[in-house]
């Protein structure tokens, strides 16, 4: 093992060229990148992005990959953070044809493949949807039989309906797939006749939407620390195996934490 590690090659920095930019919400956009030599990735992994100013100053951040394995391009969905040195550049300044340096894929724990089986329970908040979306897109690309054998549910917390990232695509995925349920909760400004949940994710909500513990769902929770702490604690109290609950946190300073 030590020998293997010593011989491993470093994860190379590569140049990504912005092929397309998709506005997701007023604060979130997706960069679709051409990355020659990209080695492939698993749903849930992330990349390190490095920016270089004219005087040579550099800084790095981590971003989850939104595109599924096998896509010819790499998509990163970035939320502009308050005071974000890198996110404000990526969201407000970067244009089609510009380049960014990136290296990856990184992370081998918060990952899921249809080969891992289901049921798949995804719990996300805000831009915590990004690695979960890679999993849903990966699952959507599987043959019908495989998909039906791995039913999935997404519980997704957003502040308001207009801040729901991937809103139309999530609706389309759920409409065309009986084995996928998407459940939204809107924590601040639910529309007047909103029929769904309108509060932060809590234990009662998780008990209502999650498969019973006896079904042994594979659980992935991604969001800010308060959401992740609340959801993971509640799931343990509801008797889900702690080792079946994988968490990833988006810290207030940006990037998956």
């Amino acid at each position: 093992m030590t020998g293997d590690v010593a011989e491993a090659r470093p994860i190379a920095w590569r140049i990504g060229t912005v092929h397309e930019i998709i506005a997701e919400t007023s604060r979130v956009r997706t960069l679709v990148l051409d990355v020659p030599g990209w080695p492939g990735h698993r749903a849930g992994q992330h990349v390190d992005v490095r920016l270089t100013a004219e005087d040579g100053y550099q800084t790095e951040r981590s971003y989850s990959i939104a595109s599924p394995p096998g896509d010819p391009r790499i998509s990163l969905t970035i939320e502009r953070l308050e005071d974000g040195e890198v996110s404000s550049y990526l969201v407000d300044e970067l244009r089609e044809g510009d380049t960014v340096e990136l290296r990856g894929p990184i992370g081998g724990h918060f990952v899921w493949s249809v080969r891992d089986g289901g049921p798949l329970m995804l719990v996300g908040g805000g831009s915590g949807i990004v690695p979960l979306m890679a999993m849903l897109r990966h699952r959507a690309s599987a043959p019908d039989g495989v998909r039906r054998a791995t039913p999935a549910r997404l519980l997704y917390s957003s502040r308001s309906w207009r801040e729901v990232i991937y809103r139309d695509e999530l609706a389309h995925l759920a409409d065309t797939d009986d084995s996928l349920r998407v459940i939204h909760t809107l924590t601040r400004e639910p529309p007047p006749s909103w029929p769904g949940y309108a509060r932060r994710i809590d234990r009662a909500m998780l008990a209502e939407v999650t498969w019973p513990a006896s079904a042994h769902p594979h659980i992935y929770v991604c969001g800010g620390t308060p959401l992740v702490e609340t959801a993971a604690k509640a799931l343990v109290e509801l008797d889900y195996e702690p080792t079946s609950i994988r968490t990833e946190r988006f810290g207030p300073t940006g990037g998956p934490a």
Binding site: V228, V236, I245, R246, R249, G251
Partner: peptide, 8 residues
């Protein structure tokens, strides 16, 4: 920031 792979 808080980081961990699973429940606390």
């Amino acid at each position: 920031p808080v980081l961990s792979a699973g429940p606390t």
